[in-house]
Each structure stands twice: as structure tokens, then as C-alpha cells.
Nucleic acid binder design. Structure first.
Length: 275
DNA sequence: GCGATCCTGGCC
DNA sequence: GGCCAGGATCGC
């Protein structure tokens, strides 16, 4: 999926939605609506105005004046695209289209339908089961190293790779940045949390933040189908140290990149560097 | 914990 | 045709 930098890039590009009033919402028959119903989504948001765009981990929240939010997860292939004028058509896999009173539109396009649309109506969003499960955001400045380590210790049997992908420990990393963070921390993705000292976990938090921050600087990875909300290509792909480099040297030339499968996902790492 | 699974599409 | 894909849940 789009990971945190891609979602945050999308959020920033969609701030132009603020102040727009929803005229209507159309959901496709196959729209990945979870934990609520299309009717509820429409009834809750129709004729209301978007006042803020927030993000929790990889979830985007479009919040209205009543504090109710449409919660969007882009899954693996989801895109949000905003249009003011002409619409490119025909476009396949449009699963949601919001029409605003000024004639502009927001589309949710998601070929694989791994994305989700849901609602959060309480101030703390804890009524949304997805958001309730999330740990603190990696980019939350109040998220301390101490708390991160405490949260890691709740899962002693997880491999470090599984740990970094676990959104309840800390939210925002996906497969690419998990590989990048582990490489930067010189930690073997197969290593278990229980055999990893606090110092190394602290390092991992730091490198995860570094990798995400760099991703954000370049506006996301843009592997094959990611586009920001306005349709610009991103370039972070050119800066990945290990992800997607099986059989090649890491980008910084420190060793040969191997690919293994963990939890049915590819892990790229450099065994001679990561211990 | 791990593997299977939900989907479609791109690439070799 | 087979393999791969930025995610996350569910059942064993």
C-alpha cells in the first residue's frame, strides 16, 4: 500500500477540500465499505462541510463540522483524485465519488479493493475499530523512545520485521520503509524482539523516523500506481537503499541485497550488514 | 506466529 | 501462464 509518506503526501495535496460542502456521495456496488454501511456513510456526511483532513497511521480522515469523519484506507492500490474541471473517463474501479456543491469531485479509485471506507464519529475516533487498534504514529513528537520500547516488549516472539509492520505497536510503516528502517539500523529482520536490546530498539525507532521523513521529503515512493492527490509522480523510489534491489548492491554499496519471504511478504536485507 | 486469503493488473 | 505487488485480517 501507500505507506505513511504516501498517505501524508495525499493528505497535504487534498487540503483544497477544506471548506467544500458535500452535495452527494456515490458508492459503487463493490465499494470496500467496512464496519458501516453505504447508507450510513451518505446520511452522516451528505450536505456537510469538510473542515479538516487528518491522518492516523495510514488512515486518512475527512472530518466535517460535526466532528464526524470519513475514514479512508488506501489498501494496496487505492488512490484519491480531485477534479475541478473535466473528468477523465472512462475510468475503471471508481468506488466512491463525492460531488461538492461547487461542482468539484473527489474520487476513490481502487482496483484491488483492499482499501476500506469507514466512519469515526467520536472525538477520539475510538468508535472506529481500525483506528482504535492503532499505536502511536511514528511521526508523533510525543511518542517517546521509552514508550516505543515498552510497546515492543509486549510482543517478544515477533521478528523485527513483523514488529515493524504491526500497526498496533506503532503506526505508519509498511513493507518498503520497514525494510529500509531495519537496514539503516543494521538489524536482521529475522531477529526476535526478545533477543533485541533496548538500545537497538531505540535505534530502530530512530531509523524508522528517518526513513519515513525522507520518504515524505520526496513525496512518496511511486512504485507503479501511486499518484498523489493531484496526480504528480513522486521520486522516493530513486533513494531506496535495499527495497527492490535483490541481487544488487545496496544503494550505499555496503553489501549484496537478499530477498526472503516473511509472513508472506518480501523482505529485502543485507545479511553482511544486518545482525 | 504462520499461511492463506481478499482482489486486479503489470511484467517477464 | 506464473509471479509479483506499498495491506491487514482471520483461522489453525
Amino acid at each position: 500500500m501507500p505507506e505513511m509518506p504516501e498517505v501524508e503526501t495525499t493528505r497535504r495535496s487534498l487540503k483544497i477540500l477544506v471548506g467544500r460542502t458535500i452535495e452527494s456521495i456515490h458508492l459503487s456496488k463493490l465499494a470496500p465499505v467496512e464496519t458501516t454501511t453505504p447508507t450510513k456513510i451518505c446520511r452522516t456526511l451528505n450536505k456537510t462541510t469538510i473542515i479538516t483532513l487528518k491522518r492516523q497511521g495510514k488512515y486518512l480522515l475527512l472530518q466535517n463540522e460535526a466532528g464526524h469523519a470519513l475514514v479512508i484506507h488506501l489498501g494496496m492500490s487505492g488512490q484519491l483524485r480531485f477534479f475541478e474541471g473535466n473528468l477523465p473517463s472512462p475510468v475503471k474501479h471508481i468506488h466512491m465519488e463525492i460531488k461538492f456543491t461547487d461542482g468539484s469531485r473527489l474520487r476513490f479509485i481502487d482496483a484491488r479493493r483492499f482499501g476500506t471506507l469507514s466512519l469515526a464519529q467520536q472525538v477520539d475516533y475510538q468508535d472506529n475499530p481500525f483506528l482504535a487498534r492503532l499505536g502511536p504514529n511514528y511521526d508523533d513528537k510525543n511518542f517517546s523512545t521509552r514508550e516505543f520500547i515498552q510497546r515492543c516488549r509486549q510482543h517478544p516472539k515477533l521478528s523485527l520485521k513483523s514488529l515493524t509492520l504491526n500497526q498496533s505497536v506503532a503506526a505508519g510503516l509498511g513493507n518498503i520503509y520497514a525494510c529500509e528502517a531495519l537496514y539503516r539500523a543494521k538489524l536482521d529482520p529475522r531477529r526476535l524482539v526478545k533477543s533485541t536490546p533496548d538500545r537497538a530498539l531505540a535505534k530502530l525507532l530512530h531509523t524508522a523516523r528517518e526513513a519515513l521523513a525522507q520518504g515524505l521529503t520526496y513525496g512518496g515512493v511511486s512504485m507503479r500506481d501511486y499518484l498523489s492527490g493531484l496526480g504528480h509522480r513522486a521520486t522516493m523510489k530513486d533513494f531506496l537503499l535495499v527495497y527492490g534491489r535483490e541481487g544488487q548492491l545496496s544503494l550505499d554499496g555496503r553489501g549484496k541485497v537478499h530477498r526472503i519471504i516473511q509472513n508472506a511478504r518480501s523482505t529485502f536485507f543485507v545479511p553482511t550488514v544486518q545482525k
